[in-house]
Write a protein that binds this DNA or RNA. Structure first.
Lengths: 337, 337
DNA sequence: AAGGTCTGTGGTAACGATAACAGGACGCTA
DNA sequence: TAGCGTCCTGTTATCGTTACCACAGACCTT
């Protein structure tokens, strides 16, 4: 007898026990109302046959698809991998599987990827930031599933929001920079089109400084993905162009690390002559001396909370849950004093 | 009239055009043999109604589930995020969606996660390393889908293998270290149980040195996830215990970076007094001075190739494809000479 | 003893798509 | 004009599971 071409189905298990598929289904889903003897028999048969449930069929029949669509812009800078790990933890034990889509930092791609993922009729959607194309919003509304927007909390969300106020983070850093006595500040930023989180952060920062009569000396942007060498190059350009600069506020920690190397190579005391701050609180920084000032964004926590929020919503909680992660400023050793 | 509670289905589109579902299905899948007028009509109706195909139903009917199960041990060290990005690129345009599972560097978890993912009846499975539990192997065999094992190529695979010979990478580094004149070598390693890739690498390295009459001075291990501070602490312990050490071979670049900071802080010249090498070729290193010697593992490339291999196998290629990524030794500036 | 609740189980019909085959309309050849 | 192939579209069955309802028997209650 040659092996069956098709994998074992619930029907096979049912036949093996002399029961109906329905009873097998109940046992395998742990529903109550089945006698202990039957439960034991079904479980034994399922194990012996090597039965693997078919979630595709289950999803089609049950209207509930235990998938969560997750769209992050990219995985290249350690921020989103950490969020994903948090999300995995938050979803742990719920039976919900994350399905990943890469939005490539671009809302047209995000829209396309979302359309692809919605075709799986996921039970929830997680996406990054608060800014999305009109069609993206429409698709999400139509889908009628819980939506969690993560990372940013400066504005209204489609449904739930877990994030931090980028603007507040910028303001906090602005106050710390003022208090440290820096007065000639240059921003090193990503040239990424419409990175709204960066914009909010920098505008919170700039407003705080300007309110204190300290204008921003200038801004320099880089193209493409962040990297330490780009930060270094940018910082070199900044000190060449504005020799009087005494603070570099960098859009993220990679850039800040590069800036630190540039300043050290140029023989400028840090923070005595020029201070630095980054953003994110990446682990990479842990070993640098001096430790770079940054704002920790609780990335893992954001992911975890997003997972919990999804579970809450699926459990009947009302739309529009919000959870604010407080930006935690870590002054490190690159602010004066 | 209140809106339909259920999302638009293919049947709704068919009804709107006065056609059968079958014809709509053909148009939407781009099958040939439909008149241009019909195609246009269906597409217009689908767009107007905001129809989103239901891949769950399609998968159940078509026996082909356009999902690829991907199990990586974790996302915490930038290696696997890069692999995932490569995989996403390799799968681009094929309609295959990666579904991620985290194996948590532990084969029992891997087994559990695999069982969960196989319940989706994916078209292919990607997993990390060549060592898996007996049940894991059995499930994979039973599933009867292409399997690609990535990262390691020191041994036979279940089906396809894309990776590099960790042993060869270790040997290469061993030769480079010998050539550079280092003679008192300490290994800084992860305490992770059964990290076979690390073991292969270190044993290739140690054999090469020992064959040249240079024994390994000692090994120190750390617990948990890699980080720069752990590397620093480990290196401090190493120089305290073996003051004569003149080379630290680290299990990865994070540890190596920490070791560099420790040596610099201890006032030991690098590489004059003590050399360092890491492993992976992470971007983090790009900014450090001196640049740390490492072995680039072509992580993105591994992911991309794995994706291509899956497509080839689904397209009829025979089992057992192998692709060897040559470990690329980057001597940086932390080997003598 | 009659009428109720509760327990455990089975039957049947979806769920939304696709595979495989069937067949009508049309034009061309002989 | 019959015969045949091509092009296009429809019909029917099926994928593996779960929802919903039915129902037999055990066990109470009065």
């Amino acid at each position: 007898m040659r092996p069956r071409p098709r994998p074992i189905s619930q029907g096979d298990v049912a036949a093996a026990c002399g029961l109906s598929e329905m009873t097998v289904s109940r046992v395998l889903r742990g529903q109550r109302g089945v006698s202990p003897a039957t439960i034991a028999m079904v479980q034994a048969a399922a194990r012996d046959l090597g039965y693997v449930p078919n979630r595709i069929a289950g999803a089609l029949a049950g209207a509930r698809v235990p998938l969560v669509a997750v769209i992050v812009p990219g995985l290249s800078n350690m921020v989103f991998p950490e969020v994903l790990m948090g999300l995995a933890e938050g979803l742990e034990g719920s039976g919900l599987q994350p399905v990943l889509g890469l939005g490539n930092y671009d809302s047209a791609t995000e829209e396309r990827v979302l359309a692809d993922l919605l075709a799986w009729r996921p039970s929830a959607v997680v996406l990054t930031g608060l800014e999305h194309s009109a069609r993206t919003r429409e698709m999400l509304l139509r889908a009628g599933v819980p939506v969690v927007e993560i990372m940013d909390s400066d504005g209204p969300g489609i449904d739930c929001v877990v994030g931090l106020s980028q603007r507040a983070a910028g303001r906090d850093m602005g106050r710390a920079v003022l208090a440290a006595g820096h007065r000639h500040v240059v921003l090193l930023q990503s040239g990424q089109q419409g990175d709204r989180r960066q914009e909010s952060r920098f505008s919170g920062f700039a407003e705080t400084l300007e309110a204190a009569g300290v204008p921003i000396l200038g801004r320099l942007a880089y193209d493409g993905a962040s990297s330490v060498p780009k930060g270094r190059a940018l910082a070199e350009a900044a000190i060449a162009r504005w020799p009087e600069v005494d603070f570099l506020y960098c859009t993220n920690d990679m850039i800040a690390a590069g800036a630190l190397f540039a300043l050290q190579a140029a023989g400028r005391a840090v923070p005595g002559q020029t201070g630095i701050a980054g953003f994110s609180g990446l682990e990479i920084l842990d070993g640098l001396a001096p430790r770079i000032a940054t704002t920790d964004t609780g990335r893992f926590e954001i992911g975890r909370k997003a997972g919990e929020m999804i579970l809450a919503r699926l459990d009947g909680a009302a739309r529009g849950l919000r959870h604010e992660i407080a930006p935690r400023l870590d002054p490190g050793g690159t602010l004066r004093r």
